[in-house]
């Protein structure tokens, strides 16, 4: 156990250092930053991105990418909200929504494996298709009105706003799967070299499809948090920032687009870094335009730190 802890510190020291540094700088820059309220805020805002990023880590590990999760988030949210409106028992509605999310993931995976297509283009097309479906199903306007008990579960008034609790639970589960199960080894093996993995007896197509299904399911789970947070299902949810962050954060955390790596904790820290920067710049009152520059620069810094570490 001690050994594993030491290994994690070793593996993540770049991002951890960045995170600590950012927090120190902002604490000095703004009196409002290091307050209990704001720390809760940062954690709360990270929840959705953490869940999306965890799904993305699975996909990235196989050397794939999923651009459609933002649209999946919007569409499954609308599906769930429509089911709520039809008075479907809400946990059943959520289960159905997750199935829809998995269905979208399966479609992605099926096109990628069956036709040997490139994940980028398949999921780009799916981004467009699913977004269109969300707009059609919602007729373009948000669906308001969530069941009380649903709100209680997904944004209850606990100490650690429930969102982050769910997100960390998801992350922990994912980390367990990746570190301790054969499945976790298989997906990394596919990322390392699909043919070699196939030769070693791994059913590569099935495993590849499964990671997109996981990403779709987790996008749906994050849509529940989104709905609970907004108190509505929005057809334009997850239009850009969400899915771009979900790709950027895992890579900041040391994952690679070439596959073969699956660092869940790195992805979580990556999300926290981005959330801290946004919050800190808001607290300092930095204008929106300058914020874009700063966030871009931080992403570049983070990948540089990562490439520094890789060389050693």
């Amino acid at each position: 156990m001690g050994n594993m802890f030491a290994r994690s510190i070793q593996r993540y020291r770049g991002v951890i250092a960045t995170l600590v540094l950012i927090n120190i700088i902002f604490s000095f820059a703004s009196e409002y930053y290091m307050t209990m309220y704001n720390i809760m805020n940062i954690l709360d805002h990270s929840a959705i991105s953490i869940i999306l990023s965890v799904g993305m880590v699975f996909v990235l590990a196989t050397g794939g990418i999923d651009l459609s999760i933002g649209s999946t988030l919007a569409f499954t949210g609308i599906v769930a909200a429509q089911l709520f409106k039809m008075q479907v028992f809400w946990p059943a509605a959520l289960v159905l929504a997750v199935l829809v999310g998995m269905g979208i993931g399966f479609t992605n995976g099926w096109f990628i494996t069956h036709y040997r297509l490139q994940p980028f283009i398949v999921t780009l097309a799916m981004l467009s298709i699913v977004r269109g479906a969300a707009l059609i199903l919602s007729k373009g306007s948000p669906i308001v009105g969530m069941p009380e008990s649903f709100l209680q579960v997904f944004s209850g008034p606990r100490i650690l706003g429930n969102g982050i609790f769910i997100a960390l639970l998801v992350a922990a589960g994912a980390a367990f799967i990746i570190e301790k199960t054969a499945y976790g080894r298989y997906i990394r093996a596919i990322g390392g070299g699909e043919e070699a993995a196939y030769v070693c007896g791994i059913r590569t197509n099935r495993i590849t499809r499964s990671v997109y299904i996981i990403a779709g399911a987790l996008a749906t789970v994050s849509s529940f948090l989104f709905m609970a947070g907004m108190n509505a299902a929005e057809p334009i949810a997850g239009l850009t920032t969400e899915w771009m962050e979900a790709i950027a954060a895992p890579i900041i955390g040391g994952n690679s687009l070439d596959g073969g790596r699956a660092y869940i904790l790195g992805a979580v820290i990556g999300v926290l870094i981005l959330s801290c920067i946004r919050s800190g710049l808001n607290m300092m009152g930095v204008g929106q335009h300058y914020q874009q520059i700063a966030i871009g620069a931080v992403i570049i810094c983070a990948v540089l730190i990562d490439s520094l570490r890789k060389d050693k």
Partner: peptide, 24 residues
Amino acid sequence: EIFAAPTESDIRAQANTLEDMLGK
């Protein structure tokens, strides 16, 4: 003090930024 969403479609960024503002 004036804040804004990065684009007119970024609904969550607007909500998050407003929550940040509540701390001020």
